[in-house]
Design a protein around this nucleic acid. Structure first.
Lengths: 200, 200
DNA sequence: GCTTATTGTGAACATGTGTTCACAATCGAC
DNA sequence: GTCGATTGTGAACACATGTTCACAATAAGC
């Protein structure tokens, strides 16, 4: 049973997506060439027709993640006006995304990232910083409009925001899904939004 | 150059500590038997005189981490009275500990934990839950004493507390030490403590 | 339809790493 | 000091995994 020949652009995309899905289900370690090729329906050496190395596949996966993260911010900007709504919805979507695709935190916090070449670490750090910047901007705008009180540094709030997602995803992963991430998000957001809100 | 014979209890302890240090410096992947044995000053197969497997060494490392984490809570309880001081100091010490020994987050969030046998994941989850319980208790006591306002659920506050540490440690790791974790802790704690404080 | 570039295959190779085992050195009890 | 138990050594093994390469099948251009 030979796999049908497919144009390399399409295969590249397919491989990246399958890779992300693999990581989501069983961790980065499960993203080995045997499993990856198997899931694609191809033999391991065929991967090298489309990527020069496994490292390159990982890069593609990281790019996939980057795009999805920043896309969330843009969508929220488009769909909502008030800073509070935007943050609320962004948190909601970010947590949802991570619950449905645990590959993202698994990749971002993985050994291969920390232990790998410094280039990759910087690359991932850049993605996170980008994301943090945009969240901080949402906060800053809210302060300028008088929705939020001016005291809290937007960068700090953005990082605490990220902390909520991190905690939710780690506890979820650790507890085998038993941890109720949605409820935690709700409860924590109530406190966080109250913390930054303008006094009534 | 033959290594001196050492009683197994001492070697066991030594191996666990060296293992944790190795992870701290270069990630869990660096904790392989070659490096581990080399650092101990022994040949790889000698490790098996003291541990039945590498898995068992990891277990010992986890136990080391568990002890250090809970020890922090106890010390803070002993040294301070007010709930606010206790939380402040605990956060301070926890962040310090992680900055000085990044092996801890590296182990706790690593692939080997998530991907390994469910037993180990539950074991780590238990440690985190224990820790969260104790932090929640500090918060609860503060509320009962009137130091903190009664609204915020102690469990949520405890998880947000953990989120601060997580974010600090991840950003620190990612940025190659450039991220100023101490300043973030300070800034975030100011917001968090204000959030839970009793109205003046 | 023929040619050429592209994609897929299977086998082999290199490497890193956990583990076992027979043997040697050393320590402790008597 | 002798003897048995404990600890350390070196070599070999098993296994997973990334990678290469010669060859086969297929798609695309003319």
């Amino acid at each position: 049973m030979r796999a049908p020949k497919t144009k390399t652009e399409i295969r590249r995309e397919q491989i990246a997506q399958v890779a992300l899905a693999l990581v989501a289900r069983h961790g980065l370690r499960a993203m080995n060439l045997a499993a990856l090729a198997g899931e694609v329906g191809v033999v391991p050496s065929a991967i090298y027709r489309h990527y020069p190395s496994k490292e390159a596949v990982l890069d593609a996966v990281l790019d996939l993640i980057r795009r999805r993260l920043l896309e969330n911010v843009e969508n929220v900007r488009r769909d909502f006006i008030s800073a509070r709504d935007r943050l609320d919805q962004l948190l909601r979507r970010h947590v949802d995304m991570i619950l449905h695709n645990q590959g993202i935190p698994r990749v971002v916090f993985s050994e291969e990232i920390f232990g790998g070449p410094p280039t990759r670490r910087r690359q991932v750090y850049q993605v996170i910083e980008d994301y943090l910047d945009r969240v901080a901007n949402l906060v800053r705008e809210g302060q300028e409009r008088g929705e939020f009180r001016p005291g809290p540094p937007p960068e700090t709030v953005a990082r605490m925001f990220l902390g909520l997602v991190q905690t939710a995803s780690v506890l979820r992963l650790m507890s085998d899904g038993a941890f109720d991430a949605a409820r935690y998000r709700e409860s924590a957001w109530e406190l966080l939004s109250e913390m930054i809100a303008a006094p009534t």
